[in-house]
Simulated scan of single mutants.
Amino acid sequence: MRTLGRSDVRVSPLGFGAAGISNLFSAIGEEQAYDTVHTAWRHGIRYFDTAPHYGLGLSERRLGAALRDFPRADCTVSTKVGRRLEPSDAGGDDLGHGFAVPATHRRVWDFSADGVRRSLEASLERLGLDRVDVVYLHDPDDHAEQAFREGYPALEKLRAEGVVGAIGAGMNQAEMLTRFVRETDVDVVLCAGRYTLLDQGAAAELLPAAVERGVSVVVGGAFNSGLLADPKPTATYDYTRAPAEVLDRALRMNEAAARHGTTLRAAALAFCAAHPAVASVLVGVRSADEARDCAEQFEAQVPAAFWRELRDTGLLPAEEPS
């Protein structure tokens, strides 16, 4: 277990991203979601991340129900604020946002102090918990002014009150997260998709700044939404069809992994975990088999010769740790 920044919150090196159990792209049953969480637990995962955005609250409800079978003190739970859920009678489904659930609610962007507290209270109710360990400002890309002026101070106050143990921001970009690291007193930032075998954008400024400031980084999107888990022409990269050049790089990495007796999945996870700023790597899984495989791949040893080949062939920058 690793401690987040200067907080007392500890996370497992491999974390559980709970978007997948909230019908991301296609529906899964309650039993499958339950089994997925339980399998992750049996394989040592103790950090679980969710958000109201995922399945319009379904992720929080399913995760909370599954975690009730385990001692609360033994697991770390994070959720996010910034999108409040309001009831809607519009009908239809939520596939426009990527989730196969009825559109019973609508998302309302709100990084105000009141919105932060209201969102967290609703999350606790859905989770069935009296507290969460970590709260992130979720995707404040287009709401920077309110997030820094109102949302962040609200989280700082919640931390001071002991309502949450650690605070931070979670985004799919590195630039604004670097600003959070340098200009605020966050404990952790969640960076999705910007520090992977295919995209080292976070390495330029975010990760060095985090090390310098003593802020932890949680890396999400280690597989870049699928391409690094199973590279093929139909695979997605950042939730869209992979560009030809990126697909070619992934296929070449996959061939190198096979030559060295490892897998691209193991290498993708190992790469994310190797940087000294990184406290945990989140994987999004939707089945017991996927949870088991990710845990096993995370524990696998990736041969040094594999990393040398990637650097020698220009597939990986020479300065990146692994």
Rank of each mutant, 00 (worst) to 15 (best):
T3E: 11
D141V: 12
A291R: 01
L227V: 15
R61Q: 14
P208W: 06
I28S: 01
A204H: 12
G314S: 08
P140M: 09
S216P: 01
L155E: 06
Y34F: 14
A270V: 03
H143C: 13
G20C: 13
F16R: 05
S26N: 13
V218D: 00
L227R: 06
Y237L: 02
D312Q: 12
V189N: 05
H53N: 14
Y54G: 04
E290R: 08
S12Q: 06
A27M: 12
I21A: 09
G261L: 09
D89M: 12
V283E: 03
A210K: 00
E121A: 14
P303N: 04
A274V: 10
A304M: 11
E299C: 14
G170H: 00
F271L: 11
V285C: 13
I167R: 00
P303W: 00
P231S: 03
A90H: 12
G92M: 13
G20D: 05
R259F: 07
P87H: 11
T263W: 09
A244K: 14
F99M: 10
L63T: 02
C272Q: 05
K232N: 15
E296W: 06
A288R: 05
V186K: 06
E183H: 14
V219A: 03
Y54R: 04
T178I: 11
I45T: 07
L207T: 01
V116G: 01
F148L: 15
S216F: 02
E299W: 01
E60T: 02
A147R: 00
R241I: 09
G91Y: 06
R107H: 14
G128Q: 13
F306C: 04
A304S: 13
L24T: 04
T50L: 08
D289Q: 13
G162R: 08
A174W: 02
P317G: 03
T263E: 02
F70Q: 06
V108W: 10
F99Q: 02
G314E: 08
A295D: 06
R10T: 13
G151D: 04
H260R: 12
R311N: 05
R118C: 08
K157I: 10
R46D: 04
E212I: 11
A209T: 10
R213W: 12
E255P: 00
G201S: 15
P13Y: 09
G226T: 08
V281K: 01
A166K: 03
S59F: 06
L24E: 03
A273H: 07
D312F: 03
G55I: 14
V281P: 00
L269Q: 02
R117Q: 11
T3W: 06
A235H: 00
K80T: 11
Q173S: 15
A288N: 12
P102L: 07
E299A: 15
A174T: 02
D49P: 00
V186G: 10
W307P: 03
D312H: 09
